[in-house]
Design a protein around this nucleic acid. Sequence first.
DNA 1: GAATGTACTGGACGAACGTCCAAATCGCCA
DNA 2: TGGCGATTTGGACGTTCGTCCAGTACATTC
Lengths: 173, 173
Amino acid sequence: MTVRQRLLDAAAELIAERGWGAVSTRVLADRAGVGSGVVHYHFDSLQAVLTEASLGALRTAVDELPQVLDSVDTPADALAALLAALDGHGGQELFIETFLAATRNDELRGAVAEILIRFRAVLAAWLAERDVPTPVETAAVLAAAVDGVLLHRALSADLTREVVVPVLGRVLR
Amino acid sequence: MTVRQRLLDAAAELIAERGWGAVSTRVLADRAGVGSGVVHYHFDSLQAVLTEASLGALRTAVDELPQVLDSVDTPADALAALLAALDGHGGQELFIETFLAATRNDELRGAVAEILIRFRAVLAAWLAERDVPTPVETAAVLAAAVDGVLLHRALSADLTREVVVPVLGRVLR
DNA sequence: GAATGTACTGGACGAACGTCCAAATCGCCA
DNA sequence: TGGCGATTTGGACGTTCGTCCAGTACATTC
């Protein structure tokens, strides 16, 4: 793996671990196993690394969404698969941190909003095929609800799949 | 208002505006209109200000929840009131930032978890009175979903009450 | 083997950070 | 008025920050 990619992977890890505002050039270089100067050799700024890393993780997650959804049939299984898929990507904190950072950076906001639109579109198409009412609106709310569940789950371990799926499943009828 | 309270108010504002990790002693003192040294006269550390400010905002929101819920009758109105109430408290970003900070600080995590339990309990009691099935689980998921909606709404203005309430309302039947 | 260009190192730079503290200021009681 | 404790100030401290850059290492080309 190239040094550039190692930096991006390390950035995604550190955003989730420490928060967007607490990732520094030196810990980033350390985690990637390179000298501290290499960050500004491959990227214009620290913010550029964080932005590219977080957007890459989001895009990967959305790109994998169709095959995740198509591997299940029932809405309940889809919900469970959705939660598991987003949970797996280096911790839910990365997505939440990126959303929050996007509210404070116009360039990032536009990119995240675009990815979110694609996420909703894929989800809405799957819902429409299964005759869920108002698939577009349902997809938008469901995407938000799943993010909220991931956030709360970080603090409250009892928000398990067994609790979430039956309740959120009512949205899909 | 005391200087101490002005510092707490300024801290809540700045956490929402800049993020937990980007609030410094100097901008905090500036926003409160005091000298930079006064922060460590009233508080042990910068983290102590942020912690007390964010927990105070959370507790206030939960304390106001019963009267918010009791002022409406239908589940749809309750959802709308819930969204509006949490939205009003100096921006939804404060709550999300606090949740994320709590995942990285054990003392904060315990306090936030306790407040979340109270929030769920109040909501569950209201749901039980209206014969919503599995009120405890529904309250837990609904609290998470509302937080997620607030987060997504910051990036996507089309997640209006008119879209959210009908979809999330299906959870309450 | 010399030259060239890419990739990387480690340290320098000024700025901003959290924390602390001596001095200045305030309100209040003797 | 004088004195005292509580409050506030602005700056000092050592550290860490983002960024930059002279120098090194290495592969590739003549």
